[in-house]
Structure formats: C-alpha cells, structure tokens
Amino acid sequence: MRICVLLIVFAGFPAAGFAQFDSGQISGFVRDAQQAAIPGATVTVTNQGNGDHRSSVTNAAGFFVFPDLPVGIYSVTVELSGFKKFVQTDLRLSAASQMAVDGVLEVGSLEETVEVRASPSQVQTTTAQVARTIDTRQIQALTLNGRNPIYLASLKPGVRGGTIGTFDPDSVSNGSFSINGARDDEYVVMVDGAVATRTRSSGSMLGAQDVETVDEVQILTASYRAEYGRSSAGQIRFVTKSGTQ
C-alpha cells in the first residue's frame, strides 16, 4: 500500500514541472522621481482576464519579482503611503517570457493614481531566444485555411514546408515543417508545457488543436533556454486558454 501511495504522489510531479515552462515572469524596480530605490512598497500583479492577483513587497533595493505567472494580460499596481498609486495596465505576458516593469512613484496621496498603458509592441530585452508569438487576437483575425493552428508556425521566418494534411482541422500531423533547414523530425510540439509529439509515430501529435481553445502559439527557432530540450531544430508550443471572471 505504501508503494502505491508513493507512486501516485510522484506521478503528479512531471505535470507541475512542465507547466512552469509555459508560464512567464514579471519583475522590476520601484524608484522615486530622483531614481532612489523605494523599499517596502506593495506591488500587486492582476490578471485582467480572470481577476487572479498576487502581491509582494519590494526589498531594500526596491526590487520585486513574480515568477510562474500564467499567460495573459496583466496590470501592475504599486502602493506606498506618502506616494501616488502607480498602475500599469495591458501588459501582455507570453509563455517563457521575462517582462521588466519599473515603477516610478511620485509624492502625493494614495487616492491619486498615475496610470500607464503598455505599448502594443513590447521588445523582449531579457532573453536572447529567437521566437515568434502569435496571440489569441491574431489567431482569431488571421484567415486560416482549415482552422488548424499548427499551420501558424509558417509565419515565423526560417520555418518552411508543411503538408497538405495541415489544412485539415482534425489532422494530428505535426506539420512536417523544416525549421532552419533541419529535418521535419528534429523539432517538437508542446501543449501547455507537455510533449505532444508521438515518439513512435513520426510526424504525428497526440491530438489536434483548435483555434477556439488556443490562447497563443509560440515558435522557438534558436537560442532558447536549456529547459527546452528534446529538439535540435526548434519548438512549436501551444498554450490553451484559461478561465475568465
């Protein structure tokens, strides 16, 4: 009986390990108008889609970090007595991204708010990976023959080829792409951090994806982090939608 219990407990570990790779991170520094660090400020990140939120307090250097955040659109709020509230909204956090958000607090009352909206295009400066992320808004707007999101990988420069079966909405083909000139069996398909490529059936996935349930498609082609092993050519990663409020 003890052995069975241990097997059940450890069986849950791989899923948790995979899931963290399809999450993102928001970190930054809180400073005043003279660029001096502000310790003890309360920082809250809120998922604008479902209302989930987390809070932390800046350290002596004014630094804060929120790891393992699910993919989504976030707001960051910074509060400290004697300063105006700082709010930055519409921050699009993608899988495996590390977003830097710095807050500048102005002297004033907490009833006063300084609100900043994120720019539509945010340059990734914290990692060197070569990737293309297609979010849910783009997925819905694009004319996609067959409505099979695997074909979106062809939008990334360096991805070529693809089979006619890709246009079938029920196809479980991995697309048969060539990434950076590599063979079509040298990349892997992932869904929510779990391997979806069938190891004993070349060119097939464990199931077809649906554009209505996919939140974003990420194509990694070079310089991605070590935890994205298993493939020499690249990765096609699907992140499915989460719940809403």
Rank of each mutant, 00 (worst) to 15 (best):
Y187I: 04
S223P: 05
D215A: 15
E112P: 03
Q138S: 11
A208C: 07
V214T: 03
E106A: 10
R92F: 04
P39W: 10
A153D: 00
F21R: 13
T42V: 15
S23C: 15
V214G: 05
C4L: 14
V188I: 10
I134W: 00
V65P: 01
T46P: 04
P149S: 02
N59S: 09
T89K: 13
R117I: 05
D184M: 05
Q235H: 14
D32W: 08
Q25T: 15
S121T: 10
V239G: 01
D168Y: 09
D215R: 15
L6C: 14
T133A: 11
D210I: 04
V191D: 01
T213S: 14
F64H: 10
S81T: 12
G193S: 04
A16N: 13
Q20K: 15
P70G: 06
L105N: 07
S119F: 01
V101N: 03
F18G: 07
F13P: 03
F177K: 07
S109F: 05
F29P: 06
R237S: 06
A19Y: 08
Q245F: 01
L7K: 14
Q124V: 07
N180A: 06
F29V: 12
I164E: 02
A15K: 15
Y224N: 09
G49Q: 13
Q129M: 12
Y228L: 05
D210V: 05
D210G: 00
G162M: 01
G72C: 00
V172E: 12
P169A: 03
I179K: 05
S27I: 04
R132Q: 07
T244G: 04
G165S: 09
Y228D: 04
R117Q: 13
L206S: 15
I134L: 09
E212L: 12
I219R: 00
T213H: 10
S75K: 10
D170F: 14
G165Q: 10
I179T: 07
G62F: 05
V107H: 08
S171R: 02
V57P: 04
T213Y: 10
V172I: 12
Q34K: 12
T199I: 15
T126Q: 11
F21I: 14
T143E: 12
A33T: 14
G82W: 03
F29I: 13
S202Q: 11
G103K: 01
T125G: 07
I134K: 00
F21W: 13
S202I: 14
F64W: 03
G82T: 06
R31Q: 14
T163C: 02
R198N: 06
A182M: 04
G28D: 01
R117G: 07
A118Y: 00
T42A: 15
T163D: 09
D170Y: 09
R225E: 10
D215Q: 14
F10A: 09
G28E: 08
F83I: 06
Q48I: 11
Y228N: 01
G40F: 02
T77I: 11
M99G: 05
L142H: 00
K241G: 05
V188F: 05
Y74K: 04
S94V: 08
D170V: 10
Q48S: 09
N148W: 00
S204R: 15
G229F: 09
F63V: 08
N148H: 02
R117E: 08
V214Y: 01
S109K: 14
Q88I: 07
V57F: 14
M205T: 12
G161L: 11
F83K: 06
V65Q: 02
V71W: 00
N148I: 00
K85Q: 12
D184K: 09
V159Q: 05
T136R: 11
A61L: 15
G17N: 13
I134A: 08
